[in-house]
Simulated scan of single mutants.
Amino acid sequence: MKNPRNRFKAALQAGRQQIGLWNTIGGNTVPELLAGCGFDWVVIDTEHSPVEAVEVLPALQAMAAWPEVSPVVRPAFNDPVLIKRILDFGAQTLVLPYIQSAEEARAAVRAVRYPPAGIRGVAGMTRASRYGAVDDYIASANAEICLVLQVETRAALDALDEIAAVEGVDGIFIGPADLAASLGHPGNPGHPEVVTAIEGAITRLKEIGKPSGILTLNEAFARRCMELGTTFTAVGVDLAVLADGVKALRARF
């Protein structure tokens, strides 16, 4: 069999808008449910959640029943050991947090690629290769991996052009919460200085032709970001949706 095509990466390259959702509740039931809700992409988050790397595998297996949605995984850090394991589980798209420089971006690229282009460790019997059933998986894997880097500090914004220009970086994701803290407004991503910085980054990325994305629970701001140029836009978090729904149900009674 052929290596599965990365639908998320293809949509990025085509400039198609993709609407996403964040998964922070562990296990395989919630990822499976979310995968069937009609979103274009769902992030399995192991940075700001109790989800451990080993739990990514059953989540990906559960989501596979819904081929219309692209599973995306956020490792806890730009760590080649974590990245190697998650890629072996079959993840094709990664969002790596807290990238601060072009040097860190190049390290991320090396971590997701097999030699000689990178340092990803080689193993045969993994879910990524469908346990050996994919023809020439090692030769074809690099082309289908999608690497998105998260910029979320003042330093990262200052180095935005250099980070985005690194060969092998497929997109830039802007992290509003950490960016707000870095700019001196912790807990207030709606502060005018933060909003201006985000909008400026989106505009700049569009000018240089690099796909950009964001997560925001503010629907008006999500639409504003899309108008400015984000093409992978996450608009909800499972725990937040659950909390809002439960509170609204209680309020009705």
Rank of each mutant, 00 (worst) to 15 (best):
P4Q: 06
R7W: 08
K9F: 05
A10V: 09
A10L: 08
L12E: 03
L12T: 05
Q13Y: 13
A14R: 12
G15C: 04
G15T: 01
G15V: 01
R16T: 12
R16I: 10
Q17M: 14
Q17H: 07
N28P: 05
V30T: 08
E32R: 09
E32N: 10
G36E: 14
G38F: 12
D40I: 05
V42T: 09
V42D: 04
V43W: 02
D45F: 06
T46I: 12
T46N: 10
T46K: 07
E47S: 02
P50L: 03
V51P: 00
E55I: 10
E55G: 05
L60D: 08
L60F: 06
Q61D: 10
A62F: 03
A65N: 10
P67M: 01
V69G: 00
P71W: 02
A76C: 12
F77N: 12
D79A: 04
P80C: 12
P80Y: 01
D88T: 09
Q92C: 10
T93F: 00
I99S: 08
Q100V: 03
V112A: 05
P115W: 10
P116Y: 01
A117C: 07
I119C: 09
G124H: 05
M125E: 10
R127L: 08
A128L: 02
R130E: 14
Y131K: 07
A133R: 14
A133L: 15
V134R: 10
S140H: 15
N142M: 12
A143H: 07
E144D: 03
I145K: 00
V148D: 00
L149W: 03
L149R: 02
A155F: 06
A156W: 03
A156S: 13
L157R: 01
L157W: 01
D158T: 15
I172N: 03
D178Q: 06
A181W: 11
A181Q: 14
S182H: 08
S182T: 13
G184P: 10
H185V: 08
G190S: 14
A201D: 07
R204A: 12
K206S: 14
K210D: 09
G213C: 02
G213P: 02
I214F: 07
T216R: 04
L217G: 15
N218E: 09
C225R: 09
C225V: 04
E227I: 08
G229P: 03
T230G: 09
G236I: 01
G236T: 11
V237L: 15
D238E: 14
V241R: 13
D244M: 15
A248L: 10
A251K: 13
R252I: 11
